[in-house]
């Protein structure tokens, strides 16, 4: 789970999405095929080549007002087509903490 903040070269080896945080409240968001953002991973645009990943990231980074800290994250596509986070860090960002909050939400 090397921090994506240290992501230097863009070279993907499997299905990926572009994710960021929403500027006004920090909520985790994903770039969609409709050139917008969604807080649901299920809505994310999937890229499978490094060129497509670069293009999707460039589009995301261009939206400096709506999103902050865009980067490429790996995902898994399950047999039923469901998109699942590709590592623990992205699982935590998508599904929430692995611990109970001190005050239940």
């Amino acid at each position: 789970m090397t921090s994506p903040l240290e992501q230097k070269k863009i070279r993907i080896t499997g299905p990926s999405v572009v994710t960021a945080n929403r500027t006004h409240d920090g909520v985790v968001i994903y770039r969609t095929p409709q050139h917008g953002w969604s807080s649901r991973l299920a809505d994310a645009a999937i890229v499978r080549t490094s060129d497509d990943a670069r293009a999707l990231l460039a589009e995301a980074v261009a939206d400096d007002v709506g999103a902050i800290g865009s980067y490429i994250a790996p995902v898994e596509i399950k047999d039923n087509g469901e998109i699942a986070p590709g590592n623990l860090r992205e699982h935590i960002r998508s599904e929430g903490l692995t611990i109970e909050l001190p005050v239940p939400a």
């Binding site: 789970m1 090397t2 921090s3 903040l5 800290g69 623990l88 860090r89 935590i92 903490l97 692995t98 611990i99």
Partner: peptide, 17 residues
Amino acid sequence: GLDYCSLANARSIPIAQ
């Protein structure tokens, strides 16, 4: 740790718990 922090590589709080 990784439950909150964007720099973390691994979780701290569940280990402590």
